[in-house]
Simulated scan of single mutants.
Amino acid sequence: MDCHHFDAGRCRSCSWLPRAYDDQLAAKEQGCRDLLAPWSDLEWLPPVASRPERFRNKAKMVVGGTVDAPTLGILDPAGAGVDLQDCGLHEPPLRDALPALAAFVTRAGLAPYDVPRRRGELKHVLATVSPDGELMVRFVLRSTEALSRVRKHLPTLLADLPTLVVATVNLQPEHKAVLEGPDEIVLTERQTLRMRVNDVDLHLRPQSFFQTNTEVAAALYRQGRAWVDEVAPARLWDLYCGVGGFALHATAPDREVVGIEVSAEAVASAEQSAREAGVRATFAAGDATTYAARSRRGQPDLVVVNPPRRGIGADLAGWLEASGAGHLVYSSCNATTLARDLAAMPSLRPRRARVLDMFPQTGHYEVAVLLEREA
């Protein structure tokens, strides 16, 4: 992928950009193999490649510049805006929508937040595109001062972007490096973005997490489903379930599926998806480790975990080690913490693993591992 921003030194987010994509993928798999080398009998499935460009389903744009000439992109070391509307990572519908969003900033008089001077209103524009090409856009504001202007000019934006189905204002009043705040004001009739992944419709609410790369996420869920169906558990727990990607791919008429996620917004999304699909799955908001330790639902036959980069940690690993779960599907975005967690569960032996390149042009990737309890 060619990028004039990288060549000019304006943006170095794609730290692996100078490397050929095939070399990137090979290096990621080898790095993961090295970290999981203690399990020498682990079977490695072929890695899942991504499109090296135009793969990101979300744009997280810092707003800089001025009302009349806003920038959507990042900030330079001095806090000035660097415009990245033509970033080659974004899916085409996202890239095509950004000029209209920049024009809306001017039309609605949304003063970009000046980080060094701590003044202004609009901090970020967050946009997500579904596989159907529909858009969700969130304007992260410092306060409600500009809310009336956003509402006033929203009809024009909806006319400019007919695929925009969910628009919100998020409030982040604090001066710190946090992308969004806790309060969300939905401005459209629709409140969720429908993400059609494989044969499952997932509803995405504004503050719900979804994988950045839709095509590779679909491959990840297919792999998880294949392993679950192979084991055929009667009772499955999906811990850190997010909007229910793994859980809703793993449902079956004779299977009890429970998803646990700390985000209430994500749980609401998962519940809506399950209800509309008419499948047997229960979701609840809560801490995964606390749920496992206190649950009275009976021991699961198989557990799926998809934790953040810090991994599942010693407490949950200890519970899984002592539990009656016969199998574990572990999806990790950090193979270093994955290896640590696997070492804490010696009774659950890693059998198969697969690297999925969720993040081309960087050193990051996803890896899925199937573990089986040793007799």
Rank of each mutant, 00 (worst) to 15 (best):
L101H: 10
Q223G: 03
G181Y: 09
S130E: 05
H203S: 11
L370Y: 01
G245E: 00
A108M: 07
P70C: 10
L158S: 14
R294L: 14
V63H: 05
G363L: 12
R309H: 05
A167F: 02
Q223S: 13
R340G: 11
V279F: 03
E321I: 10
A285M: 02
A111W: 01
L158I: 09
P162E: 11
R151I: 13
D34L: 15
V303K: 02
L157D: 06
L187S: 10
R190Y: 00
Q24H: 02
P92S: 09
D201C: 04
A218F: 08
R19S: 14
E145I: 09
L25K: 06
L239Q: 08
E215Q: 15
K28R: 09
D83L: 10
A317P: 04
C11S: 09
P233W: 04
P350N: 11
L98D: 10
Y291F: 15
L72P: 01
A59C: 06
A335E: 14
C32V: 15
H364N: 12
V48H: 04
C333Q: 01
D96P: 07
A100N: 02
V262I: 14
H327V: 07
T192C: 05
A108D: 07
F359C: 05
M195S: 02
G120Q: 10
V258P: 00
T290N: 01
C241W: 02
V231T: 07
Q85R: 15
C32S: 12
P112L: 08
G88A: 13
G133W: 11
D34M: 13
V166H: 06
A266G: 02
L72T: 12
L302D: 03
A274C: 02
F359G: 01
R119K: 15
E265T: 07
A20F: 01
T282G: 04
A292Y: 09
A335Q: 13
N306C: 06
A317I: 12
A167G: 02
L126N: 04
I74D: 09
H327Y: 13
Q299T: 14
L157V: 09
D22F: 00
L348S: 12
S13F: 14
T128I: 04
T144S: 09
D160T: 09
